[in-house]
Design a binder for these strands. Structure first.
Length: 259
DNA sequence: ATGACAATCAGAGATTGA
């Protein structure tokens, strides 16, 4: 089973780029972030025609997450537990039933800038709720993963110019500590466990020719429970699509698991 | 220190993003 995460930066603007990538990469499951669309306006038929089941958790203008899956999706849950007043659409999870069942969570973690400030407080509070959900997933002792745009640069090697990020919400010590607390519960971050060293990114800003200069950061991650990590076969980043027509500023990150 | 770029909603320019 091939599972990818992809922040598409707007479904309306990305219909062609997303369709082309799906045809090329043929993931069984695609976790999408920043659909920037209400559920009613998501062009689900387009993906159903390609053989995907579609579940969305959208909102007007901003945020919004979705799951495309060639396998049936069961027990869909929308919204990260822990704060009933949170109206931002940043979390969706479902059980994907392939040769075995895998619990799959798609997330769009808050950016948090400017930091410090209320937006950063929201980011840290959201990460605390994520940690609670992460603990529950581990306690189930089943194959499960949490994947998406974490808006976290885990280490300096995950940025082309690490020094410029040290005061940014994506890489501040508190951010990295909160991310590590979750990892250290027992998750395996798929890409980094297989590919060491600098130079591997999942986001390049639209500005200042960041892609041409390979001035990127790695902020899209797949975190696997031990039972899921045991199934890991391969992982990669589809960086080349950043150079195509009308690209998202993120690119897909994927894993292949035995499931 | 600022803006550079893109998307959204709206129907200009503010807001958001990373």
């Amino acid at each position: 089973m091939k599972i990818a995460t992809f922040n598409i930066n707007g479904i309306k603007a990305r219909v062609q780029a997303l369709s082309d990538w799906l045809d090329d990469a043929a993931p069984d499951v695609a976790l999408l972030q920043e659909i920037k669309s209400i559920d009613e306006n998501f062009p689900r038929e387009l993906f159903e025609e390609k053989g995907y089941n579609v579940e969305t958790h959208g909102q007007k203008s901003f945020n919004g997450v979705a799951i495309l899956s060639k396998y049936p999706l069961e027990d869909v849950v929308r919204g990260l537990p822990g704060d009933e007043s949170d109206e931002q659409a940043r979390w969706i999870e479902a059980t994907v039933v392939g040769s075995r069942a895998v619990r799959i969570c798609g997330l769009y973690l808050p950016n948090g800038n400017p930091a410090p400030g209320p937006k950063y407080d929201y980011k840290l509070a959201w990460m605390e709720r994520l940690e609670a959900r992460a603990r529950a997933l581990l306690e189930a002792e089943e194959p499960a993963l949490m994947a998406g745009d974490y808006n976290v640069i885990p280490q300096d090697e995950d940025a082309a110019r690490p020094e410029v990020w040290h005061t940014d919400a994506l890489a501040m010590p508190q951010t990295r500590a909160a991310y590590r607390r979750i990892l250290n519960l027992g998750f395996t971050e798929a890409f980094r466990t297989r590919v060491p060293g600098p130079g591997h990114y999942s986001f390049w800003d639209y500005q200042a020719g960041a892609w041409d200069r390979n001035d990127g950061i790695r902020i899209d991650h797949l975190l696997l429970t031990p039972q899921c990590a045991d199934l890991l076969r391969d992982t990669g980043i589809d960086a080349e699509i950043r150079g195509r027509e009308k690209p998202s500023d993120h690119v897909p990150v994927w894993i292949e698991i035995e499931a």
